[in-house]
């Protein structure tokens, strides 16, 4: 029984298709995506721009409906917004008039449920993302990387079952981006939440993930599913591992196949 629960799929997508109706006709954002994600897995979705990665994430969060096909979270079909999905976007989307701490508390405040426990939780998350001393600052006083760390703490404040991240580091400079990757790996290790991480960066995907899915462009389906063998906790030194480079070249080749197919 316990084993059954353990192997329970946290997220499944079966023949998921999304078609947007636009004035110039229907646009197929996702053709037929199918995958299963085990609980506690960190899964990256790699793919060229415009391949429907973000749409797929919004459908998992229940913020966009599927045209056909089904998505389940913990065995339940997604039919509306999933209140226990933590989300991160390309922009930190912090509220400029709120302090860092109040930004972290925002998801709870929006349900009118701020309590002393949630406050304590927000405070411990701020310590985890190394922003404790900035708790009373406004977002404008923070650097881009710090703002995304606030957004990460905010995504975790509800103690969500899943973490959905849509290119959260792609607006950052290369050095900050690497640091954020290491920080996310470290923080994720302490929470081990089922996570979907959308990115354009192959190295970022390999470093962070247990699995990397590659999404092709037209038809936008999952064309590759690669398991990443490195032990956790992960250290930046794995990038020197020959297997890292092998995986990198392999994934790069699959992405090139899909963009070249155009």
């Amino acid at each position: 029984m316990l084993a059954q629960v353990e192997t329970f799929k946290a997220i499944t997508a079966a023949r998921v298709r999304k078609v947007y109706e636009t004035p110039s006709g229907p646009v197929e954002a996702v053709a037929e995506a199918g995958f299963e994600i085990a609980r506690g897995d960190f899964v990256s979705i790699l793919g060229p721009s415009g391949c429907g990665k973000s749409t797929l994430m919004l459908m998992i969060a229940g913020l966009e409906s599927t045209t056909s096909g089904t998505i389940t979270l913990d065995g339940l079909q997604v039919s509306g917004p999933q209140t226990d999905a933590g989300m991160m976007f390309q922009d930190p989307t912090l509220l400029p008039w709120r302090s860092v701490l109040d930004n972290v508390l925002f998801p709870i405040d929006m349900r009118g449920a701020v309590s002393s426990e949630s406050r304590t939780r927000a405070e411990s998350l701020l310590r985890m993302v190394d922003l404790w001393s900035f708790r009373d600052k406004r977002p404008r006083e923070l650097s881009g990387g710090m703002r995304q760390r606030v957004a990460l703490a905010r995504a975790l404040v509800n103690d969500p079952r899943i973490l959905l991240m849509d290119e959260p580091f792609s607006a950052l400079d290369a050095i900050t981006r690497d640091e954020m990757g290491y920080a996310l790996a470290r923080i994720w290790d302490t929470t081990r939440k089922t996570a979907i991480f959308i990115t354009h960066s192959i190295r970022e995907a390999i470093f962070l993930s247990d699995r990397v899915l590659v999404m092709g462009r037209r038809p936008s389906t999952i064309i590759e599913d690669v398991r990443i063998p490195f032990e956790r906790p992960r250290d930046p030194s794995i990038e020197a591992d020959p297997r890292f480079n092998e995986l990198y070249l392999h994934l790069k080749a699959s992405i090139h196949r899909t963009t070249g197919a155009q």
């Binding site: 913020l63 989307t93 929006m110």
Partner: peptide, 21 residues
């Protein structure tokens, strides 16, 4: 921001709270 509004929906905020806050 559209993503911020999505976040509001995802955490289960109702319309009046989205307006107020």
């Amino acid at each position: 921001d559209r993503d911020l509004l999505r976040l509001c929906k995802a955490v289960g905020a109702d319309e009046s709270r989205i307006y107020a806050k």
